[in-house]
Design a protein around this nucleic acid. Structure first.
Lengths: 162, 162
DNA sequence: TATTGTTATACTCTATAACTATA
DNA sequence: TATAGTTATAGAGTATAACAATA
C-alpha cells in the first residue's frame, strides 16, 4: 500500500505546505529564497552577503541577483561594512520589515491549515515527534549514511539463494 | 525558535530522506524519477507513456528521454499497445525487476534510519498522524488554498490600528 | 482531424570563470 | 597576494513547437 510509505507521506505533506508557502510568497522578489534573505536581513547581527549565501546553501553569484531584486523592490539595503568595506551587509528597510511580518502571519495560517485534520492534542504530539526527527536529521550526512547502507547491503544482498 | 516551525522541521526531515534516497538511486538512469518509472513498469496493468508522465507530474517529452535511458540500460522495454499501436507501454525486464526489488529493500533501510530517534510505539504513532495529514493534503489544491488565505487576510490585515 | 510519441529549438535556472575594489 | 562582491558566459534541466505515425 502506497499510503504506508514514509517517503510518500512526507512528500505529499511537505509539497502541499511548500506550494502554499510558494504561492503566499509569490509577491516577494525571488520567492521563498527572497523571503529567507529578508528574514536574515532583520536579524540583530547583520551578516555579509557571502556568509548569508553559504548559510542558505545558495551560490554567492545567485545571491547577488537575489539581493539586486530585493533592493530594487525597496525591501532591503546594502551597507558597506564599517570594518571591512568589501563586506556588504544586508539590512531590511521599514517596508521590508512590515512585509516580512505580514508574510510570517500568513505562513502561520498555512501551517494551521495543513495540520487541520488533527485534533489539538494530536497536533502537539505530531510536532513533538517531528521535531525529534528533525533535530537528529540535521546532524546527519545523508549521502554518507546512504553509502554506508549500500556497502552493508552489498556485503549481504537480499537474495533467496546467495 | 526555529525548531518550532513546522515548515522547517518538515523540510529537514524530508530533505534528509530525499538525499539518502537520491544517493541510493544514483545507480538508476534518471535517478529518483527513473525509479518511479521502473516501479510503474512492474505494475500489473501496463500504462502508456503519456498517462504515466501525467501521473508522475512530468512532461511527456521528458518522459521520452527518461524511457530512452532506462531502455538503453536494459531495465525496461517499450511495447506497442495491442489495441492502439501508438500507445507504447512500458514494462520492466527481468533485470529491471530485480534491480527494483533491491532498491526497495534499501529504501526501507533508509526509512528506518530516519525514524531511528523514535521508539517503536512512537514510530507507529508518527506514521499514523503523518498518514492522516497526507491523505487530506493529497485532496487539497495548495495554490487555491493559499489564494483564499491571502484574500481572507487582505480583508482584515494584521495591523494594530486598522 | 485528433492523438501518441519523437525530435528540434528555446528558455530558465544555476554554476564557472574572469574582473573590480578593497585589504 | 587574498578576499568580497560583481559581471559575463556556459552548462544542465525543462518546456514549447513542429513533426511522424496511427487512429
Amino acid at each position: 500500500m502506497l499510503d504506508d510509505d514514509l517517503g510518500w507521506s512526507l512528500g505529499v505533506v511537505f509539497r502541499t505546505y511548500v506550494r502554499m508557502a510558494d504561492t503566499l510568497m509569490s509577491s516577494v522578489p525571488g520567492g521563498p529564497r527572497g523571503f529567507q534573505v529578508l528574514t536574515a536581513a532583520t536579524a540583530e547581527e547583520p551578516v555579509g552577503q557571502g556568509a548569508l549565501a553559504h548559510r542558505l546553501g545558495i551560490d554567492r553569484t545567485v545571491m547577488t541577483y537575489l539581493v539586486d531584486e530585493l533592493e530594487a523592490a525597496g525591501l532591503v539595503e546594502r551597507r558597506a561594512g564599517t570594518k571591512d568595506r568589501r563586506n556588504k551587509q544586508i539590512v531590511a528597510t521599514g517596508h521590508g520589515t512590515r512585509l516580512l511580518a505580514d508574510l510570517q502571519h500568513r505562513l502561520g495560517k498555512a501551517e494551521s491549515h495543513v495540520l487541520e485534520p488533527l485534533s489539538d492534542a494530536e497536533r502537539t504530539r505530531f510536532r513533538r515527534l517531528l521535531r525529534k526527527l528533525a533535530v537528529r536529521a540535521q546532524d546527519l550526512d545523508p549521502v554518507a549514511e546512504a553509502c554506508a547502507l549500500v556497502e552493508e547491503l552489498d556485503a549481504a544482498p537480499p537474495r533467496a539463494h546467495p
